[in-house]
Structure formats: C-alpha cells, structure tokens
Design a protein around this nucleic acid. Structure first.
Length: 507
RNA sequence: GGCGGUGUAGCUCAGCUGGUCAGAGCAGCGGAAUCAUAAUCCGCGUGUCGUAGGUUCGAGUCCUACCACCGCUACCA
C-alpha cells in the first residue's frame, strides 16, 4: 500500500509582490514533496494564491479594472515564481476558482446548520487594509500597526464562528498530538495562546463586495482568512479528475512562516472540528530570512529579490543556500556575500569540483567508462555512505532540511579526501595497481551517485546532471533500493563536461 | 507584568537524559599534492562556554538571582 503525502504552502496574497519569503516556503514544501516522491509515496503538493479582499479590490479600482481582471494579471507573477524556483506543485489553486467558492459556501453552510455560526453586532476600530478589527491599545497613534493607516470606527452585523466552544477540544488535540505543530517552540506558543482563552471570531464582512458571498445572506462576504484556509480542503475536490479528498486528506504538512501560526494552529483546526473533518497531521512553522539582522522590508531597502538571485545563481543554488545557511525552523541571516561564499566553497569547490575531478580521472585513468567494483569491495567510503544516508533520511523525516544537507556534505568532503588519500594518478603509474585503481574510481563514482540521490529533492537539476555525467539514468532516483551501495550502473560512458557551478567572481 | 526562548572560538552555529564536551564549518596562517573550476588534502584555536552564586566527587550540561537580546501574551495602576 502506498503512502499518501499531502503538503501545502500558504496561498500568497495576490496583490503583493512575490518576495523571498514566498519563495522560501514554496521551496521548503517542494523539497519535502520531491523527497516523498523519491520515497515512492503518492504525493500531492499544493500552492496557490489568495485573491479576495479589499486591497486587491481597491488596486483594481485604481487601475480601472474589475477585481477579477486585476487578479488574473497579478496571479501570473506568483505562478512565475513557482516555476522559477522549480516548484513541482501538482496544482495551483486560486481562491477565485468557482469550484473553490462553491466549496467554501458549502463548508460554511454546514457550520451554519450545525449552529456554530451566529449573527452579532460588533463595534470597533477597523483597518480596511487588514480587514481586521483592532483594540484601541493595539493601535500606534490611532493607526493600524501594519499599514500605518487610520482605522475607522465601524459598527456592523457580522456572522461569528463559535471558536470559544472549541477551546478544550483544541487543547486536548494538542496534548494528544505533540507533533501537531513543529518546531516545539511553536507548538508551545500556539497551545499557550489557546489556554489563554479564545473568543468567537467574525467570519464575514458586510462592507466588502470582493469576496465569496455568505450562502444564506448574500449581503455579506466570507472573511478572507476563512476563505483562504479552506483552500487546503477545496483544492482536493477539483484538482484531479476525481475527488482526491479520500486519498489525501488529512494533509501531512502545512508549511508556513511564523506570522500565520495562529490562523493555522487555532482557527483552522477549530473550523475543521466544527465541520467534522480530520485535522492536518502537522504544521511546520519556519522562521524569517533576515538581512543584516533585520526583517526584510521595502521601506528599509534590505530586500533580496528571488527572481534576481535565480537569474544570477540558478534555482538550485538558491534552493541550496536557503536551507544550508539558515537552520530550518529558525530565523537566520542571509546576504549576497553569504550566498557567494556558500556557492564558491560548497557548490563550486566541494561538490562541483568533485564531479569534475572524478569524471576527469575516469576519463584519463579508466578509459572513460563507468568502472565496476573489482576485487575486495572493502571500503570505509561504502560504510560512510550508509551512515550518511541513514542520518540524512532521518533528518528529512524530522523536516530538518538543514541537518540533512549538513550530513550530505560530510560525504562530499570525505570523497574529496578519499581522492587525496588514494591518489589515483599514482595508482595509474603502477601497473600492479590496476585493480586498486578501478576500485577507487568505482567508489568515487558510486559515492557521488549516492550524493546525487540524496541531493535530488534539494537540487533537482544538479542531481540529474551529476547522474547524467556518471552515465546513470537520471530518473533512477528511488531512495529505498536505489540509494543502497552498489547500485551504480557500470560500463556506461562518463561525461566530463563544463563545471557544474562556475566560480562567482566578485569585485 | 506573565509565559517561553536565546546568550559557546573573528563569523555562523553543534553540544540529548551532568563525567575526553571544550567541538564543526567558514575566515586566517603554514605545508603537501597536481586528477580537478589555483579547485583539494594536512597541520595550527590558552575560547572566563552572558554575569554572580549554589547543588555535586565532578556542570556549557542541573538550581537561584541578575544582565542583554528575541518571541508570544496581558494590562493592573
């Protein structure tokens, strides 16, 4: 029986400019998706865009377009970002998809029928940009802390969801599922927020038009966050040629940055409970990529544009850097200087050059054919490869992406050292050492093949290219059997091509 | 204010349940080698493990207080 693995990114707000944080989350989810495909799991990987709400509606108005015309254009940049980072998503959901809208209405209708939604008049300070109410204390000089705009004193009748009714059930779920939210610190944070007391939340807006109508009261639209969260469920219903829900729900992982933890760890589970759905197995909450120790922001001017980076370094290098440099789950500092350093030392010098020297030596000393294991197969390289595989896959199962890369590099470094220790160029001059030479070349090629397989989810293009140069089938990427020592297909032609990662020269 | 976290070599950080735990990578210095993208490999660190106490035969590793920074949360007066 094949294991099903459903992973999601948040849906990104279509009116914003795609930034490095979107890319980061998407790549993280993609790495896990690819990894699980490699394990042979049946994977569904979802990303998409959140398209309703006031900011998009107003931007459309300013441009003299209908909201839909506007978002149809804006969505392209996010689809482009997914392509450029090499995301292997199985579907791209848009909350303006008619199927999604119907699904949201159906879901809310269910909660309404069950009595978990009621009408209540609410009065407060409302930020139109956030589409949220603020307590006077939360405002900075009377203005929205996020947008710096004046909040309006608003009184409206809204539909409320009985979030408060789910407090104890939520805590129970947290206590029964200590791995529900990862890392642990985020679990604690979410749990303590719940124990601190939950209030019912407004799930509709009366003043807004650009949204999904409340099915039993079309004068109101669904609050964007409820609309957005439901994408995880609705997409399964129509992304395939049949309803995928039975196979893929509950989700294995929702990936997200720390700023939207509460929506996912509190409101989302409560909504699911109310509707009688299963809860996602895990939420994984990652940190921020910082520039100069500060959160990136347009006003500070300390932003890294993911498109720029990919244009200069390639998608693989970018993917590698994000997870090599910053311990996944924590905040971490990134910079162009850091990227250059990692690129040159680890990609060009360690990995790229290892590929070059290995293929060059097989070319010069081994007739250009992928060597076979000869004589005794005694090799501490083989055992190290085994340990590294075990460690790296264990790290992946903990979603410790940084740890996995660290382990893989132990093998990369060891292979470089192995070349120095064995000095094939000396063995090549000694006629009695022919068998030894072939074994050394074999160990190098086989070690490198295993590196390539372990790196496949992180750097799919590089991985395929390494395999190609070693005369291996590019698709032979299985991690259950293919990863075992001895899987090298021998006899094929090695390709000694251009450097995988040409050095970056910096002024 | 409450809760939680962090503070270890110049830099980024590993160090789980106390006894080679004083480490890794990068940067720097010296050397070897030449298959390779002058790429690699080897050697070199006297670090008050935030501060001050305490528990223990023994503490980055446990306890207390304090300092700094961060996150969540609250708001009495």
């Amino acid at each position: 029986m094949t294991n099903h693995f459903y992973i999601t990114t948040p849906i990104y707000y279509v009116n914003d400019v795609p930034h490095i944080g979107n890319a980061y989350t998407t790549i993280a989810a993609d790495i896990l998706a690819r990894y699980h495909r490699q394990l042979g799991d049946d994977v569904f990987f979802l990303t998409g865009t959140d398209e309703h709400g006031n900011p998009a509606a107003r931007a459309a108005e300013r441009r003299g377009l209908s909201p839909l015309e506007h978002v149809n254009e804006m969505v392209k940049r996010f689809q482009e970002l997914a392509r450029r980072v090499n995301a292997s998503n199985d579907f791209f959901i848009r909350t303006t998809d008619p199927e999604h809208e119907r699904s949201v209405q159906k879901f809310l209708g269910k909660l309404y029928d069950r009595g978990d939604i009621y009408l209540k008049s609410y009065r407060g300070l409302y930020c139109p940009a956030c589409e949220a109410f603020y307590a006077p204390k939360d405002l900075l000089e009377g203005k929205c802390p996020d947008h710096g705009t004046v909040c309006d004193e608003v009184e409206e009748e809204n539909y409320f969801f009985r979030l408060s009714a789910y407090q104890s059930k939520l805590i129970e779920h947290f206590d029964k599922h200590p791995e529900f939210v990862k890392p642990q610190s985020r679990f604690n944070e979410a749990r303590s927020f719940i124990t601190g007391g939950l209030e019912d939340i407004s799930i509709s807006r009366a003043t807004l038009k650009w949204g999904i109508p409340i099915p039993w009261d079309e004068s109101q639209v669904v609050y964007v966050w409820v609309d957005a969260l439901l994408n995880y469920l609705s997409a399964l219903e129509y992304a395939g040629d049949h309803d995928l829900t039975p196979e893929f729900w509950p989700a294995s992982y929702h990936m997200m940055a720390k700023d939207i933890l509460k929506f996912h760890a509190v409101i989302w589970p409560a909504l699911l409970m109310a509707a009688g759905n299963k809860l996602p197995e895990h939420l994984f909450v990652h940190g921020y990529l910082l520039m100069g120790g500060q959160k990136m922001s347009k006003t500070r001017g300390n932003v890294l544009d993911p498109f720029d980076i990919i244009n200069r370094y390639g998608a693989d290098a970018f993917r590698f850097y994000c997870f090599r440099e910053v311990t996944f789950g924590q905040d971490g500092v990134v910079s162009i200087e850091g990227l250059d350093a990692r690129y040159n030392t680890e990609l060009a010098n360690d990995l790229g050059n290892l590929v070059s020297r290995t293929t060059a030596m097989i070319e010069k000393f081994g007739g250009g054919l992928v060597p076979a294991a000869t004589g005794s197969s005694e090799s501490d390289i083989a055992s190290l490869a085994g340990f590294v595989t075990t460690d790296a896959t264990a790290a992946m199962s903990r979603v410790d992406l940084t740890g996995a890369l660290e382990k893989i590099w132990v093998l990369v470094r060891r292979l470089n050292k192995y070349i120095e220790d064995e000095a094939p160029w000396k063995l090549a001059k000694d006629k009695t050492a022919a068998n030894r030479l072939e074994l050394v070349l074999y160990n190098l090629a086989e070690g490198l093949r295993i590196c390539a397989l372990l790196l496949q989810s992180f750097m799919p293009e590089t991985s395929a290219e390494i395999l190609r140069r070693l005369g291996q089938a590019t698709k032979a990427g299985g991690l259950r059997q293919g990863i075992l020592w001895g899987g090298l297909k021998t006899g094929g032609r090695v390709i000694a091509g251009e450097p995988l990662f040409p050095k970056i020269e910096r002024s």
